[in-house]
Design a binder for these strands. Structure first.
Lengths: 206, 206
DNA sequence: TACGAATCCATAATGACTATATTTTCGTAG
DNA sequence: CTACGAAAATATAGTCATTATGGATTCGTA
C-alpha cells in the first residue's frame, strides 16, 4: 500500500509494481528490437535474439506483443487513428474536414520536420523494411471505420456511404504513399490537393 | 519432333512436353488449393495437403509457386496491371483517363456481373479470407509504377509526380475497397466520382 | 545415343508462432 | 505478517510455412 502514488518519472502514477514492470518489459523489448533491427537488418534478427537481449523468454515476448515480430517496435498501435478522429471532431469552426486532416497528418508520422535523430533512424528503418512498412500501413488502415464514422457524422452522410469510406481509406493511405518521398511535406500537400479538387478530366486529344 | 504443332485445346501450340507438364502441374496445384480452401477454409489447409492432393512434393509446390501459399490460387499475377495500362493507352480519342480506367475495372475483377459460379465462389473465398484479400491487393498495387507511367505520359506530367502516383495507387486500391460491398458496381462508381470531382470542402459550421 | 539442363524428390533445417503445464510474483484480504 | 488467488513468466514441445541441400529423373537436343 505504501508508495502507490509516488512520482515515477512521468509514467502514470497510479500503476502498481505489476503494471509498471509490464510497461518496463514492453519497452525493453521495443528498444532491444529497434537496436538489433537497426544494427543487423530486420530479417536477420530472430525473435529469440530479441527475447534474449531483453532478458525474457520467447513465450513472454509473445505474451507482450501478440501481433508478432513487426509489432515489436510499434508501441502506439491504436492511438494513430484517435489523433485523426479527434482532429475531425475538434477542429475550429469554419475549417473544412480535409484541412483538419492535412494539418494533423503534417505534424505526425513521417511528416514532422526536425525529428530527434533517434526517431529519424526509426522512421528510416520502417520505410526501408517492407515488412515494417506494411505493418505500419496496417495500423493506419485499422482506423478506417472510426475515421469514416467521424467524417460521416460531420458531413451528415451515412457512415457506410462508399464515398466516405473511400475518403477515409485514401487519407489513411497517405503516410505509406508519401512517407518515402524525398520531400514528404510537399508530397502530402500534393495528395491532399488531389483529394480536394479531383483529377482534371482532360479528354484524350484525337 | 513429331506433334510439336498439334492442336492442344487452346494452349500455346509451341510448348514442348516440358512446358506443357509445367503448366499442367501449376494448374493442378491451383485447382487443388482452390478446392481445399473452399472446403475447409484457408488457414485449416496446409501446403502439404495441397501438394498431396496435386500429387507433387512440397518442394515442387514451392518451385512452381515461389510466392507462397496465398499465390496458389492466383495464376494471373502480372496481367492485372497490363489491362489497366492498356486501357489508358488504347482508349478511344476524346475519352478522359479516369473514364477508361473506370470502364476497364468495371469489366474485370470482382465487378463483372453474371460471373460463372465457379469464379463467383473463388471471388467470395478471396473476399472472405484476409490473407487472400491482402495478397490480391498486393497484386494490384504491384502495377502502381506502370500505371503511373502511363498516366504521366498521357497527361504530360513527370512519372514521379506525387499526384500521378497517388492517383494510380487510389485507382488500384478500388478492388479491395469496393470488392466486398453488397453492390460493387455502385461502389465503384461512387469512388470514381470522388476521384474525378474531389471531396466538397464544406467548412464546419460555427 | 549421350550429354547438359531443368525438374523432381526426400530430407533436414530455420524461424515464427501456439499450446500446455508448471512455477514464480504480486496484490490483497484476513 | 501470512496465505490465497490472479496474473505473469518459464520451459518444453509442437505446428506450419518456407528455404537449403544433394541426389535421382526426365527432357531437349546435338
Amino acid at each position: 500500500m505504501r508508495f502507490r502514488y509516488r512520482y515515477d518519472g512521468g509514467m502514470a502514477t497510479t500503476m502498481g509494481r505489476r503494471e509498471r514492470k509490464k510497461a518496463q518489459t514492453r519497452q525493453a523489448l521495443s528498444q532491444a528490437a529497434l537496436r538489433l533491427f537497426g544494427e543487423h537488418g530486420y530479417d536477420r534478427v530472430t525473435v529469440a535474439q530479441i527475447a534474449e537481449e531483453a532478458d525474457v523468454s520467447v513465450a513472454t515476448l509473445f505474451a507482450h506483443v501478440p501481433d508478432g515480430k513487426e509489432a515489436l517496435i510499434f508501441d502506439d498501435g491504436a492511438e494513430r487513428g484517435l489523433w485523426l478522429v479527434a482532429a475531425v471532431r475538434e477542429r475550429p469552426p469554419g475549417q473544412p474536414v480535409l484541412q483538419a486532416l492535412r494539418r494533423c497528418l503534417a505534424s505526425r508520422g513521417p511528416f514532422s520536420t526536425d525529428l530527434p535523430p533517434e526517431l529519424r533512424r526509426k522512421r528510416d528503418l520502417i520505410v526501408a523494411t517492407p515488412a515494417l512498412r506494411e505493418y505500419s500501413r496496417k495500423l493506419w488502415i485499422a482506423a478506417e471505420a472510426a475515421l469514416a464514422e467521424a467524417i460521416a457524422t460531420d458531413s451528415g452522410r451515412d457512415p457506410r456511404d462508399m464515398t466516405v469510406r473511400a475518403l477515409a481509406r485514401y487519407v489513411l493511405e497517405i503516410p505509406d504513399l508519401a512517407g518515402a518521398e524525398p520531400d514528404p511535406r510537399a508530397a502530402l500537400d500534393a495528395i491532399f490537393d488531389l483529394l480536394e479538387s479531383g483529377w482534371p478530366a482532360s479528354p484524350r486529344p484525337a
